[in-house]
Amino acid sequence: MSNNKSLDIPYQEWPLKSQFNIAPLGMAATDFTHQPHRHHHFQILWFTKAKGRHMVDFVWYEMEDNMLFLLRPGQVHQLDCEREGHVIFFTERFYFANKHDKETLYDFSNLFDNWHGYGPILIGENTAPSLLGLVDLMSREHRSPGANGRSIVKHYLNAFLLLAEREKKRNATDTMRPLHHDSRVVQLRRLLEKHYTREHQVAFYANAFALTPKRLNEITKETTGRTVTELLHDRIILEAKRNLAFSHKSVKEICYELGFEDPAYFSRFFKNNAGISPQDFRDIMFK
């Protein structure tokens, strides 16, 4: 960008006119597509063919064919690539419509977890045909829903997510980064997302599990390679970067919104964790 003013980062609503939609990637092009933007819902981007790059939360990824990106609500991304493929949008409410769904459908929280380091999933040639078949089934049912259409789409989506998780684990094995799962860490993510702007002490989160801070740190370290404090600081810094880069808010306003009382302390906190001051980060983003 050529000017020194940041822009309020937009939430792209299209094409989610309901709680679920599926479309070819080419149809998902709007005025927002090539700008940093984010969504209120979960998004699956499957690039069957791609050339260029894709930015997710300030990191650019060089594109390859059969690359799958899983985006949580609020993640910032930007497309700068030639592409073919499919995009799926859905809300958590669509997937878990009631208590019965919570008990019978796959919990995708771990699949969209980026605590092991965010990265796309490379889809193997043996899995791609199965995913393509599920995309076709979801598209057909969504366009012309019959009896129990919503439930049928959810089960097709469920199968798609299960295959994606298997590919994610295969990718981790190929790169010698085995993934560990602990339901308490999934719950911790939800607590952090809800309270990170107000609760900055590990004791608050440990109390929610009736654990000592030391024990909760041991669990998260084993599962994610990070302590609770590191996970919390990572989340605060990410939100600070989003606001510095994509809003008109002052550093002082961002400081207060993230639960800090002293702007000078917040600036030191940001620099210690990001390696650069808040103002310098904003200036670099808009050179």
Score class of each variant (00 low, 15 high):
residue 183 S to T: 07
residue 182 D to R: 02
residue 156 Y to T: 03
residue 189 R to M: 14
residue 185 V to N: 00
residue 190 R to V: 08
residue 160 F to H: 03
residue 187 Q to M: 08
residue 160 F to R: 01
residue 174 D to P: 01
residue 175 T to R: 11
residue 182 D to S: 10
residue 184 R to H: 08
residue 191 L to T: 10
residue 180 H to E: 14
residue 179 L to F: 04
residue 175 T to M: 07
residue 185 V to F: 01
residue 177 R to S: 09
residue 156 Y to M: 10
residue 168 K to Y: 07
residue 184 R to A: 07
residue 193 E to R: 15
residue 163 L to Y: 04
residue 166 R to G: 02
residue 164 A to C: 10
residue 191 L to C: 10
residue 168 K to E: 08
residue 185 V to H: 02
residue 178 P to T: 08
residue 169 K to I: 11
residue 184 R to P: 09
residue 190 R to E: 11
residue 174 D to E: 12
residue 179 L to T: 09
residue 180 H to I: 11
residue 172 A to M: 04
residue 187 Q to D: 13
residue 162 L to T: 04
residue 184 R to K: 07
residue 176 M to R: 09
residue 176 M to Y: 06
residue 170 R to Y: 04
residue 159 A to G: 08
residue 180 H to Q: 13
residue 172 A to H: 06
residue 193 E to P: 00
residue 163 L to I: 03
residue 193 E to V: 11
residue 171 N to L: 05
residue 165 E to T: 02
residue 182 D to P: 02
residue 163 L to D: 01
residue 193 E to C: 14
residue 188 L to A: 05
residue 166 R to Q: 09
residue 175 T to Q: 02
residue 167 E to W: 00
residue 165 E to A: 05
residue 184 R to C: 08
residue 155 H to D: 14
residue 171 N to I: 14
residue 184 R to Y: 05
residue 171 N to P: 08
residue 176 M to I: 03
residue 186 V to M: 11
residue 168 K to P: 01
residue 188 L to F: 02
residue 178 P to V: 06
